[in-house]
Design a protein around this nucleic acid. Sequence first.
DNA 1: ACTTGACTTAGACCTTGTCCATTGTAGGAT
DNA 2: ATCCTACAATGGACAAGGTCTAAGTCAAGT
Lengths: 142, 142
Amino acid sequence: MSDLLERLRGRGWRMTAQRRVVAEVLDGDHVHLTADEVHSRAVVKLPEISRATVYNTLGELVSLGEVLEVATDKRAKRYDPNAHRPHHHLVCAQCGAIKDVHPGGNPLADLPDSERFGFTVSDVEVTYRGVCPNCAATTTTA
Amino acid sequence: MSDLLERLRGRGWRMTAQRRVVAEVLDGDHVHLTADEVHSRAVVKLPEISRATVYNTLGELVSLGEVLEVATDKRAKRYDPNAHRPHHHLVCAQCGAIKDVHPGGNPLADLPDSERFGFTVSDVEVTYRGVCPNCAATTTTA
DNA sequence: ACTTGACTTAGACCTTGTCCATTGTAGGAT
DNA sequence: ATCCTACAATGGACAAGGTCTAAGTCAAGT
């Protein structure tokens, strides 16, 4: 975490209270907040932070490769601080909970040339969908 | 295609000019239009059709399982009429072109129990990203 | 042909995200 | 310790994608 701040300072990032707060909010595993959620949480720590700043900072973190943009939700983009260990996502179809997962196998290898339409394929994104234990429980009980 | 209309009528769908036009616009392989694109094309055939109707109709087709919503683009949802043959997508990172692909292997099987967090996993969505032949050509020449 | 409830319409409204002119400030220079 | 200035933050307007509502319309059963 403070690793992140160190790394950013090293890259010539100007350190401001706003940027620190955004970085802090994004700390942790299985964290996948929308920009607005980041903003709400940031406001708690720094009431005068503006929406635009949160968007700017998130955008910069993404360009710097420190944070990933994920589109598991079909509405808002979500931001994933776990950018240094490649992974995929498991999403609850009911409550939207998201977990980072590391499947075996290499989906890239599973795409035969005949199915590549001449594309140079460089990346795969896998999203598993299902129902989390929590939602399964409440559904059966109800 | 008229299969689709038959099937829908069989399910008690009231057949209207608007719905017929939306279904017609969505016909074909490798079709992945945004709601607005569907609307623009529908307007050509039926000038007085409204945006809300297009959204409603697309939503119904999705609930009925006749059309898939795909989120390859991070802006607008896209609608894929190829709902009865499971497939994944290959997207050009530059121009946004989308192809339907059928990779070998089963990514669902690649997710070990230890990585399922107690979820009941039912579905996988795979998006391959790369550069299409067209964009590769224009980039090298430019 | 009549009736009725499902369908459509237009436009207001909401959410997510971007832009811009202005004001503020981190951090190097003095 | 203070000053400068380029970079960052602010807030409010704007844009795109999508949803909702009240009122009018029409497909299809009788």
